[in-house]
Design a protein around this nucleic acid. Structure first.
Lengths: 148, 148
DNA sequence: GCTCATATGGTGTATATACACGTCAATCGT
DNA sequence: ACGATTGACGTGTATATACACCATATGAGC
């Protein structure tokens, strides 16, 4: 019968699925950063967005989404939360309806507050992995992000 | 003023944040697998859960969550969806309220249907990365998952 | 000017994730 | 016997993610 799946196939998936591993890693790592950032009242997703906005002052939601490999509509919702908290300002529609996004003063202050906690999370990871494996991991994630 | 954050710090985060990279990778990879599995009517999270259940017939929700590095409560919601679709059965409370979880016949059939699509996604990634970088990636993700 | 392709944005809906909290069952120490 | 501890479960609430769909704006070609 073709509608039964052998145990070997299940073991193969469990052992070798790249997506399973990538998601497991993302969940675990996210917990470390979210916990570290808790005192700053930010989650790592929000912190990452604020950094991207502060760094590049993106001229549109689409560009911001592209830079972070996020769905544009996901960025829309996340930005709405940040704006509600007064951390960013979403500008009016400009050319081709594009909206510029920029940090507010509160947003910059929150970033400054959060930064040391982010550093702690990075250091936690470095200690748990060791310098060599940390570098290996960076390289691998970079290659994977580029390739996919 | 200590409430301003220098551009160098922002560049440092954007370039070196392990969590940012891990989440970007997870999003990108997830899209590949979700799209590949679409014809089977499953998302990669659901497929992964079904595989874990089919492989181990876990004796409790907590064990299943542990095995996949998921929050227990997340697993609870995801299992509720799978049970609603008739793909799994969540047993009655046993020792210490533990509930055994097992695939239904429909669940096994769905797994058999989905498996070739998962293989396609794996092959897609292998082609885009190349064998060497794929192995490198596996190793790095494995180390990261263990360490964190 | 009109039409159409393209770029940008937002909403509806559904799933995924996780913390805080409460509930219930088994076990342990006294 | 019984209170405290531990283990397991589920819900409330909030955020994160993404597809489907629709609305609006610009520019190209006619």
């Amino acid at each position: 019968m073709s509608d039964e799946i052998p145990d070997e196939a299940l073991a193969h998936v469990a052992a070798d699925c790249v997506c399973r591993r990538a998601r497991m890693v993302a969940r675990k790592v996210t917990r470390v950063y979210d916990e570290a950032l808790r005192p700053a009242g930010l989650k790592i997703t929000q912190f990452t967005l604020l950094v991207a906005i502060g760094k590049g002052a993106p001229g549109s939601v689409s560009l911001l989404a592209e830079a972070l490999a996020m769905e544009r509509t996901t960025v829309v919702r996340n930005l709405q939360l940040l704006e509600k908290d007064g951390l960013i300002r979403i500008g009016p529609e400009g050319i081709r309806r594009a909206r510029a996004i920029r940090l507010t003063r509160a947003g910059r202050e929150r970033l400054a507050t959060a930064y040391p906690y982010w550093e702690k999370a990075q250091e936690t990871l470095r200690q748990r992995l060791g310098d060599d494996d940390l570098q290996l991991t960076r390289t691998a994630l970079e290659k994977l992000a580029r390739a996919v």
